[in-house]
Write a protein that binds this DNA or RNA. Sequence first.
DNA 1: CGTTAAATTGAGATCTTTCAACTACGGTGG
DNA 2: CCACCGTAGTTGAAAGATCTCAATTTAACG
Lengths: 238, 238
Amino acid sequence: MPRQARSSHVTLTGNADCIHCPIRSQTILAAVSNEALNQVFESIHDLSCAPHSLLYQAGEEGDAIYVIRRGLIKLVQYLPNGSQRIVRLLKPGDIAGLESTVGQTYRQTAVALHKTQVCRIPISAIEHPDMPHSQLCQQFMMLWQKSVEEADHTITELCTGPADARVARLLLHPSLHVENGYFMAIGREDMGSILGITTETASRVIADFKRRGIIMATPSNQRTCRYDNSLLRQIAYS
Amino acid sequence: MPRQARSSHVTLTGNADCIHCPIRSQTILAAVSNEALNQVFESIHDLSCAPHSLLYQAGEEGDAIYVIRRGLIKLVQYLPNGSQRIVRLLKPGDIAGLESTVGQTYRQTAVALHKTQVCRIPISAIEHPDMPHSQLCQQFMMLWQKSVEEADHTITELCTGPADARVARLLLHPSLHVENGYFMAIGREDMGSILGITTETASRVIADFKRRGIIMATPSNQRTCRYDNSLLRQIAYS
DNA sequence: CGTTAAATTGAGATCTTTCAACTACGGTGG
DNA sequence: CCACCGTAGTTGAAAGATCTCAATTTAACG
């Protein structure tokens, strides 16, 4: 059963400093000139999200997109029967709430998995007359394409095959990858919601992987885990 | 194991008659004036696809999009281990090969399920200087959004829960819906590939539905089936 | 150090797959 | 016109995987 957010907090860090943003070149704002950016600058905000905090909820009027700068966001969809399913994981560089740019309400609920930093860019900023629409359009197309690809990847890799293969593929997933040989730790319940298996099964598979030495806890950092790439791959792709 | 296409044929019916096309208003060409259309007209072709024929294959250079006019198309993705997974079903009005508009190779293989008619619109036509780029851009955004939504729907509804609920949700899916109370017949193997279950399980569930009177064959038309909407819904959403 | 959430584990019930056999159907060629 | 053949669909039985429910352990945090 879905649990309600408890200590959830989204705090306004302040105005975003897009001009000096180190990852701007990797976002949709890459194509926007400093001059244009100055026009919309004030409406763009830097947010800090505590674990379990909500960026937005499914059904809300979509008035902004969110660029993930740090951490992980899950897009959760609730089913008619009350259970939930995680549809996508968003990592730094990804964008949440794209549907708001085509006038849609948010399709899923966006929840921070870890402590997360995001940039909130209101639709009004995107549609500002000084913004380079044609270039932005190209950028958005690419983002859409990426979303579809990611969703298709979820269907083919994370919803297919036995539980151990799914878990292995999830651990190999780029969103969880931090550096070579390490991945982000992720709760068993979330794991289950992504893979369409129960928490217990996820736990059993992970426990088994640990026993077999395929993954091992990193004592120094609780948030990451070390793994044996080739063994994981073998399990993931029989 | 994936079977190779046998009698597969895609035949060129001739140049498309976009000007008189009855469904043009529902496609991306809605926003294109007759004048602009006349410029690209010759490159747009009307194709007739036999069952099992290929529109394009995964990995091919994407040089056209395909508007489905009649019939059903499946987008199939092959997994490293050789098995296949159907990622999406496309019905009349949908578009296959959108990724070609952003310079990508085709991500999946597009195969006709039944006898199908499509319109092939080359990228060159879309990018023709006389075409209304800004409007087309809007249209494409909506199409992308629809693709993502469809993919997410597949994740949450067709890859989640017990086999009977999945089958029920598939039968209720808009792509299979022909008219109130009827849906398109679909092979058990394809069913399995969409739902992530085996052919046998799909067959058993369908046989069970038939015995319980939830669905019944339509004697007059082998291609469609009648169903009890409320019973199906009950099974689909416990 | 106590409290609470998360993770783990066990055992039995349930569901799905696997493998194999069998049936129904539609076309083909004699 | 009919026997033959291949494909798709169906069914059974046993093995295997996953889920459920419940108990327990571990970790996290004030």
